Structures are given as C-alpha cells and as structure tokens.
Simulated scan of single mutants.
Amino acid sequence: MKILGAILLLCATTWIGFDVSSTLSNRPRQIRQLKNALQVMEAEIVYGQSPVSEVCFHLSSQLPEPLRAFFQRVYQRLTEHHGSLYEVWQEELDHFWPQTAMKQTEKEIMDQFGKTLGQHDFTQQQKHIYLAISHLDRELKNAEDEMNRYSKMAKSLGVLIGMFFVLLLI
C-alpha cells in the first residue's frame, strides 16, 4: 500500500511540475496570437474600414482558443447591444483572462487598448494598435526569457519534490 501511495505522490508532483511548465510555454504563444490578432484588427479597421464588431467576428473565425472565445463573445455582445464597446471589452476580458496563461500585465495592456478602441479616427486608432503591439512585444520577450529560464526547472522540481516526499514517507 505504501508503494502505491508513493507512486501516486510522485505522479501528482510530476504532473504539477509539467503543468507549471506548460503554463510557462503557453504564455509566449498566446501573446504572439494576441499580437497577430491586433495586426489583423489594424488591417481591417484602418484599410478595410470595418466596424469593430465585424472585426471581432472575423477574428473569432481565424484565431485558436482561447482567443477565439474572447472575440466571439465580444462580437455576440456587440451585435446584441449589451453596453458600450469598452464595457463589453472590459467585461469579456475579465471573464476570458483566467482561461489564458497570460499575466496581469498583458491584461492591463489589452484593457488600456480597449479604452481607445473605436474612439478615434483611423490614423489615431492605428497608433494605439502599434502602441499595444509594442507593449506586447516587451511582454513577449519577458515571457520567453521566463520560459527559457524556468520551464525545465519546473519539470525537474516536480519530479524531485515527489522523490523527496517518497523518500521521507518510506
């Protein structure tokens, strides 16, 4: 019975280590996807002169999860007239953010961007998109550094902590 408990404990701590490592790996990928979404948004708003709700609809069909769900819900709420653009953006951002691997700094960038979305002419809107992308570039670099530094360590620590507890219990 002790051996079964030791194996389960080792598996659990290893799984936790791999889960932490996965979160560290997902963050840069999701930031890149967010940057791509903003670039598509820029093209559709500035060059296609599409309304924000239509842009969100297009993004919801082009992006992978979890960003797809965010833009899909923003589109649905805007077409059903559930508040102003910023109110919808902020509420959906709050609802959506826990499903991502991204941190609070990226959320603040997107929240700040949401305040300017649809408030300016095309050239000013383009500048705000570039500003958000440049902030995301900085966070992407930080996320990649963090991933390179801590991803392998999280996996190893999960296994080593499990072994430590197994040795203590046996």
Rank of each mutant, 00 (worst) to 15 (best):
K103R: 09
L169R: 08
L9C: 15
I3E: 06
Q104C: 05
E44K: 01
S61F: 10
L59H: 05
L59P: 10
G17M: 09
D145Q: 12
I16C: 02
Y47Q: 14
F122Y: 15
V74L: 12
K115I: 11
V166I: 05
L140E: 13
T79K: 05
M41F: 05
N142Q: 06
R149Y: 02
Y86E: 11
Q112C: 04
I133T: 02
Q126G: 06
W97F: 06
Q99I: 06
C56D: 02
Y150E: 03
Y47E: 14
I109A: 01
G162W: 00
G118H: 15
L8V: 12
M1V: 09
S84K: 10
L160F: 07
G17F: 08
V55S: 04
P51S: 15
H128S: 10
L136F: 02
C56F: 02
I109S: 02
Q124E: 14
I3F: 05
K141S: 06
H135E: 09
L160V: 02
Y75H: 08
G158P: 03
K127R: 13
I45D: 03
K107L: 11
Q49R: 10
Y150M: 11
Q49E: 04
I16E: 00
L38A: 07
L131A: 13
T100P: 09
A132T: 06
L4V: 12
L85S: 01
A37D: 05
C56H: 01
L24K: 11
M110P: 03
I31P: 11
Q62N: 08
L24F: 12
F96N: 08
S22A: 08
H135K: 11
M163E: 05
W97C: 05
F18I: 04
A6C: 13
K127I: 11
M147I: 00
K152D: 09
H95A: 14
L4A: 13
T116V: 08
L63T: 10
E139K: 10
F71W: 09
F18G: 00
A12K: 02
N142W: 06
D137T: 13
Q99M: 11
Q99S: 15
F96P: 03
G83P: 11
Q72R: 15
L169N: 09
S22I: 00
L10T: 15
D145E: 11
E54C: 03
E144A: 00
S61G: 03
E91L: 14
A69V: 14
E108M: 07
E146F: 00
A154R: 13
R29V: 09
Q124S: 15
T100S: 06
L160P: 09
A37S: 15
C56E: 01
K35F: 00
A143V: 01
L10P: 12
F18A: 04
T23D: 06
E144Y: 01
S21E: 06
N148C: 00
V20K: 14
K115G: 14
V166R: 07
Y86G: 00
K127N: 12
P51G: 10
N142E: 05
N142K: 05
I133R: 05
F71K: 03
I129K: 08
L34I: 07
G17P: 06
I133V: 04
L63S: 07
N148L: 07
A37F: 02
T13N: 04
C11V: 09
R149C: 03
L67I: 05
Q33M: 09
L8P: 07
T116H: 13
E91A: 14
E139I: 02
